[in-house]
Design a protein around this nucleic acid. Structure first.
Length: 474
RNA sequence: GGCGGCGUACCCAAGUGGCUAAGGGAGCAGUCUGCAAAACUGCCAUUCAGCGGUUCGAAUCCGCUCGCCGCCUCCA
């Protein structure tokens, strides 16, 4: 069994063959920490979180490095606007990002380097590029000579002549060629700076990623990931810098996640429809947010809407209801040993889906086929189904391990949902008792009135043989 | 203008040469229930934007047309 990934570099799905047998070196571009992270960052983080977890599940020794860009024009601008130090801005939003990631159940990467902690390597790399003639110094700035790198454009499929003719490339007199990009920027008065052979300044945006890759992962990495919008120019420039400096291939497989649109529109500052992760999590459980993100393939664009989040919530609800049911109706399943044969049989289609470029949508589909089957077996009171149900529980647990959904205790999930209801639990319990009293007296009008009243507040009552329980909807 | 992608049921969404076109949501009917809810059962795409071609065989490959989107500028 081999894992196939779609490689932006070749435009094809390819068998994943790491440089070093059994090991994966993976770098993903992290956030520029100048503001709260939005749902798009969440998608990228969750997509690569699953990829990381799955590769580890498949037995690879994965070094997953995701950076923080903690020095950048936008950070400086934000600091000036807020009248505070740029370091404080970076610190604040790194903390916010980490909190958001934890809330989304994103596991910590192996390394989380910061650009500012990698300054030695950045400067060293720029020096090599100057020595090799790929970069030049002008008034304390250092620029990369795009035309010197013959392969420029191979990742994004662009060619230099077309880029050149594009009127949107900003003209800068200090550049020898409009396409050249900054490796190092001389600091203006009042701006943060580091000392370098070219004077005081700070790194350009692209060079930090090359430096961090080289420092934490080595010359040729296996997987480089990020959002689709980073293909050009960011990743193209990373390739140019790194390969010019080392003379070796930079990354074998380039993986890019698709965008999140909001109600069919692109998220943008000008439209004012930026959706922060924490705003989304105020209205929805992290379980449903992840499930929403993983219900489409990571490369496809997805559309965020309240409806699609509600659908995801319904999916989660269905899953945990069934899990809860298995555990309650068939408690023996938690004690017996798993039949490895059955387990493997149930696991195979899920692995097949994941092996095919991390097709989480298909994998989730397979999980729900088992959910339906589990309910069916229990409805039929099939005593011999214990081994099947036991294997299912095990399959759910394994799948949860790499998808990062379906892994909670059912009660934990239901409680999380109940916290989002306006009414205090005691009040709900009191109304349920009042309703049951009415039911005992066959006062069904009163009983139904209470049920309808709760329903208006998103609380659904279920009269089960062992008593009335309540759940949250919407 | 250049490069790339997409168009599958009422909605979301897998499937990219050959078993009955996954799964979820919504809807309708039934079982269960005081009535519901949940669960289950049945129904819900002879058809994959349209047209033409390749093939024994295509939603899947090729061409054209229509529609939508992204990148080419900071952006996940």
């Amino acid at each position: 069994m081999s894992i196939k990934v779609y490689n932006t570099l070749t435009g094809k799905k390819e068998v994943l063959q790491p440089v070093e047998e059994g090991k994966i070196r993976m770098y993903v571009c992290g956030p520029t920490v100048y503001d709260l992270s939005h749902i798009g960052h969440a998608r990228s983080a969750v997509s690569f979180d699953v990829i990381y977890r799955y590769l580890a599940y498949r037995g690879f020794d994965v070094n997953y490095t995701r950076n923080y860009t903690d020095i950048d024009d936008k950070i400086i601008a934000r600091a000036n606007k807020d009248g505070t130090d740029w370091r404080e801005i970076a610190e604040r939003y790194i903390k916010a990002f980490d909190e958001d990631m934890e809330a989304l159940g994103v596991v910590l990467p192996t390394h989380r380097p910061r650009a500012t902690e990698t300054m030695d390597k950045i400067i060293e790399l720029i020096e090599v590029l100057i020595q090799k003639g790929y970069a030049y110094v002008t008034d304390g700035d250092v620029y990369y000579s795009v035309r010197r790198f013959a392969d420029y454009g191979k990742l994004s499929g662009k060619n230099i002549e077309e880029l050149e003719s594009g009127a949107r490339v900003e003209v800068d007199e200090r550049k020898k060629d409009p396409l050249d990009f900054a490796l190092w920027k001389a600091s203006k008065p009042g701006e943060p700076w580091w000392t370098s052979p070219w004077g005081r300044g700070r790194p350009g945006w692209h060079i930090e990623c090359s430096a961090m890759c080289l420092k934490w992962l080595g010359t040729t990495i296996d997987i480089h990931g990020g959002g689709k919008d980073l293909v050009f120019p960011h990743h193209e420039n990373e390739v140019a810098q790194s390969e010019a400096a080392t003379g070796k291939p930079f990354a074998r497989y380039w993986l890019h996640n698709g965008f999140v649109n909001i109600e069919k529109e692109k998220m943008s500052k000008s439209l004012g429809n930026i959706l922060n992760i924490r705003d989304v999590l105020r209205g929805h459980t992290s379980e449903s947010v992840r499930l929403f993100l993983l219900s489409s393939h990571y490369r496809s664009p997805i559309d965020y809407s309240e409806d699609s989040l509600r659908e995801a919530e319904a999916k989660a609800e269905r899953f945990y209801r069934t899990l809860d049911r298995i555990e309650k109706e068939r408690p023996e399943t938690s004690k017996t040993a798993v039949d490895k044969g059955i387990e493997e049989e149930l696991m195979a289609p899920i692995l097949e889906a994941m092996d095919d470029d991390f097709n989480t949508a298909a994998a989730i589909g397979k999980v729900f086929e088992e959910v339906t089957r589990a309910n069916r077996l229990m409805d039929r009171g099939d005593e011999a189904a214990g081994m099947e149900l036991r294997a299912m529980l095990s399959v759910f647990k394994k799948t949860a391990g790499f998808l990062g959904v379906f892994g909670k205790r059912p009660q934990e999930y239901f409680d999380e949902r109940k916290e989002r209801v306006a009414l205090p639990a005691e009040e709900i319990e009191r109304l349920i008792e009042e309703r049951n009293e009415a039911r005992r007296n066959r006062d069904y009008r009163r009983a139904d009135a209470i049920r309808d009243e709760l329903k208006d507040k998103g609380i659904i009552l279920e009269d089960r043989p062992d008593g009335t329980v309540w759940t949250v909807r919407g």
